[in-house]
């Protein structure tokens, strides 16, 4: 038996080598996800099942709550805005990478990958320092330059959260764009320039549309990360600031209303998938030339 398993493993054929991973994921991922789903539809208070009957109370209650929709809107607009900002900064950087020589490429890669290896808290902490109060770097610089006379409140605002998310998630946008842009066929640009288009027109009409797969990948990842991030809003948004993801955390860890927390987590996950799907569909629409036959 052991020998047979070893042979299968070595040849890598058959399903057996993947079975341990399946078993592991089933026990510690699939079943827990099912439990999470069930918790959204049962009465659970402080980790104890109160009444094992099925209830839609949390679903309908949440959806009828104006506060929920307000919080949802906030999460959505923070997510979208920081994703778009990310794109606006990442695309030029990825383009610069694709146009650069070895040294510059290495520098960009190091600067892009190293934040990924540092924890999100460390990177968010930097923004506390930069934006924080009177002694914050931005405020003190602006005062010294005479741009402003009194410190502006920067921390604990939407602005702080959006800036923080943009910076923390920037690498996730840059990497897929680099992959697509560095591998692109430059003859297309030469052809465009040869036909008399300006460099800028070539950039917007040739380079940009042809990099759609990378753009879709980047937007998807960054939106999903921003939309579900609860650490940056908590650290940079202050006590009153809340998003759907923050609500999940608070309901489960602070309020200990697990049913509500589970329902919010499910709604967060579901709406996130819907948005990602929409981004993908939009990408397909832009990329309709890549489909073999027009419908």
């Amino acid at each position: 038996m052991a020998a047979a398993f070893w042979t299968r493993f070595r040849d890598g054929r058959g399903i057996w080598p993947a079975v341990p991973a399946f078993v592991f994921l089933t026990i510690f991922f699939i079943i827990p996800m099912a439990v999470l789903l069930s918790f959204g539809f049962t009465e659970i208070e402080r980790g104890r099942i109160q009444d094992s009957g099925f209830t839609l109370r949390y679903l309908t209650g949440t959806l009828q709550d104006d506060l929920f929709w307000w919080v949802w809107w906030k999460s959505f607009y923070i997510g979208i805005l920081s994703t778009l900002l990310c794109f606006l900064l990442a695309y030029p950087l990825a383009y610069l990478y694709s146009e650069s020589g070895r040294t510059m490429r290495l520098l960009i890669l190091v600067l892009t990958i190293s934040p990924l290896l540092t924890s999100a808290i460390v990177r968010t902490y930097a923004w506390l320092v930069l934006l924080g109060g009177r002694r914050g770097v931005v405020n003190s610089t602006l005062i010294e330059l005479g741009v402003i006379s009194r410190p502006i409140r920067m921390l604990n605002t939407d602005f702080a959260v959006i800036v923080g998310m943009t910076q923390v998630h920037l690498p996730f946008m840059v990497l897929p764009l680099i992959t697509v842009l560095a591998a692109r066929d430059r003859n297309m640009e030469a052809a465009s320039l040869g036909m008399g288009a300006s460099r800028l027109a070539t950039f917007f009409k040739i380079v940009l549309p042809l990099s759609t797969p990378g753009i879709v990948a980047g937007l998807t990842i960054v939106f999903a990360l921003s939309y579900t991030n609860f650490i940056i809003p908590q650290l940079l948004g202050g006590g009153g600031f809340t998003t759907l993801a923050v609500q999940v955390y608070e309901q489960i860890v602070v309020v200990l209303n697990w049913s509500k927390g589970a329902m919010l987590a499910l709604l967060l996950l579901g709406s996130c998938f819907v948005f990602i799907l929409l981004i993908g569909l939009a990408g397909n629409r832009v990329m309709r030339w890549s489909q073999k036959e027009a419908a």
């Binding site: 695309y91 600067l111 934040p115 540092t118 990177r123 923004w127 320092v129 770097v137």
Partner: peptide, 28 residues
């Protein structure tokens, strides 16, 4: 002229992105 301004803007954004990647860690 438009090309130059446009690409100037693109490179400026790229430079700002690079700064944004490294500056916070450096400051910490």
């Amino acid at each position: 002229w438009i090309d130059r301004v446009g690409f100037g803007l693109i490179w400026a954004l790229a430079a700002f992105a690079l700064l944004l990647l490294i500056a916070p860690s450096l400051i910490v």
